[in-house]
Every structure is written in structure tokens, then in C-alpha cells.
Computed example of a mutant assay.
Amino acid sequence: MADENMEVEIARLDERLKSIERMLVDVVAGQKEAIDGRRRGYEAQERTEREMIGINHRLTSVEKSVEAIRPTTVELERVRDRVVFAGSLGKVLWAIGKAVISAAAGAAAAYYAMTGRPPP
């Protein structure tokens, strides 16, 4: 009887130890998953940091390029203003030219009407 009780106690202890062992295996597996998760998080953070550094360098290059073409942009604006002014001046001169030609044609017609001869 004592041997049976002892065997039962040993069996219970053995089951408890197996249960503790399974729990320890689960804890170790969870720690490995946590380590992998942290590693992936750090890798993602490093990739993001490298991408941000690359974007920062590209943005700096774009800013330098914009500063480099600023004089060209200012000159282009001046040329555009000159072209707009020249177009307006051309329209005014064209209107004056049409008026002068019309006046000359009218004067020639009046001379012809009054004298009956073509103008000299």
C-alpha cells in the first residue's frame, strides 16, 4: 500500500514536472517569437530611417536645384513681361497702321471723286 501511494505520488510529481516543462517550452517559444518580433520591428525602423535619410538628401538636392535656377526663372519672368508688352505695342501699332492706310485710301477716294483723276 505504501508502495502504491508512493507510485501515485511519483506519478503525480511526474505529471506536474511534465506540465511545468510544457509551460517552460511555451515560455521559451513565446520569448523567441518576441525576439523575432522585436528584430523585425528594429529592421523596419532601420529601413524607415534609411528611406527618410534618402528622402532628406533628395529634398536637399531639389532645394539646391531650385536655388540654382532661380536667376533663370527671374530672367524668364522679365522676358515674358517684355513679350507681353511687345505684343500689346504691336497691337497698338497695327491699329494705327490700319487707320493710316484707311485714311490714305479715303483721301485717295476723295481726291478721285473731286478731280475725276487718280491721285498722283
Rank of each mutant, 00 (worst) to 15 (best):
A2V: 07
A2M: 13
D3F: 14
D3A: 14
E4H: 09
E4A: 14
V8Y: 07
E9A: 15
I10H: 14
L13H: 04
E15T: 06
L17F: 04
S19C: 05
I20S: 12
E21Q: 05
D26N: 08
V27R: 10
V28A: 10
V28E: 11
Q31K: 09
K32C: 06
E33F: 07
A34K: 11
I35F: 07
G37R: 13
R40M: 12
R40W: 04
R40E: 11
G41H: 06
G41Y: 04
Y42V: 09
Y42A: 10
Y42Q: 11
Q45H: 08
R47K: 15
T48P: 00
T48D: 13
E49A: 14
E51N: 08
E51H: 01
I53M: 00
I55R: 12
N56C: 04
L59R: 06
T60I: 05
T60L: 10
T60D: 10
S61Q: 14
V62E: 06
V62P: 00
K64Q: 06
K64Y: 00
V66Q: 03
A68Y: 03
I69Q: 03
R70M: 06
R70N: 02
T72E: 13
T73Y: 06
V74G: 02
E75A: 12
E75W: 05
L76T: 05
E77Q: 06
D81V: 04
R82L: 11
V83N: 01
V83G: 00
V84I: 15
V84E: 12
V84Y: 07
F85E: 10
F85H: 07
F85Q: 13
A86P: 00
S88N: 12
L89I: 03
L89V: 09
V92Q: 10
V92E: 12
L93K: 06
L93C: 04
I96N: 02
G97R: 05
K98G: 09
I101K: 07
I101Y: 02
A104F: 00
A104E: 09
A107W: 03
A107K: 05
A108V: 02
A110M: 11
A113V: 01
A113P: 01
T115N: 07
G116C: 01
R117H: 05
P118C: 02
P118V: 11
